[in-house]
Design a protein around this nucleic acid. Sequence first.
DNA 1: CGGCATGTTTCGCC
DNA 2: AGGCGAAACATGCC
Length: 258
Amino acid sequence: MPEGLEAEIWRRSMQRLVGRAIERVEADERTVPDGFVDAVVGERIAEIGRAGKVVLVHTSGPSIGVHLGMTGRIVVDGAAPIERLEYSSGADRPEWDRLLVWTSGSRDPAIRVNDPRRLGRTSLDADLRHLGTDLLAPDRDELEMALARRRTALKAALMNQVVVAGLGNLCTDEVLFVAGLAPDRAASSLEKADLDELVSAMQRSLPVMLERGGSTEGLIDPDRRRQLGACPRSGCGGALRRSTIGGRTTVWCPSHQR
DNA sequence: CGGCATGTTTCGCC
DNA sequence: AGGCGAAACATGCC
């Protein structure tokens, strides 16, 4: 579920936690660093941030980085900002809880990270300097330089967090679809006009998906990813295709993406 | 049962 | 040396 858009939704929903003190923490030792609990108990939550797909809980002590892997989600004060779990039943079983944070004056955990597949990780003061331009505020020149030095397919480059922080499989397919760029093009083959189109597509499509609820809310939605069928771009008349690019299932329209 | 899944890290090969 | 693709990781679901 989590790409940068989901992380942003959780970041916003966690603003209410600012100012509270962390009173108790339970963590799955396999998904947090050594000494994690002792390092954060007693600290006050100062600010909630985001870096790409990572939700950052800045405290009066260390900064906690929550990465949700493929299937993780965050429940805030007992309420889930994102209920829908596309690739699981949504059962939300207690044994899938990986991190529980209780704060002053709350009965439910203020933060509950639930992750069936356990590919998510929690970090302390992680070095985030290697991340590329953010998916919700793309810097055209930075993106141009990053893409120019890649020799992979365009899609693989965009999903690399060093190139763009926060883009995952679904958002990348959506952005390329809107931009009219083929995912299997060489990343370094983009011309000025292609770059403009790519940045514009990110600026137009990602905020809309964000407001609608996340990565599954684009034109290339989960139903189309399964069923394929006609290209949803008006006047295109092409047919969606499924390919493997950059090791990931890719849905695109060879008719208008070039 | 086989295959697939919104992600990252590791390994081996250029 | 550094970057790339495939495999590994871990678990649930169709």
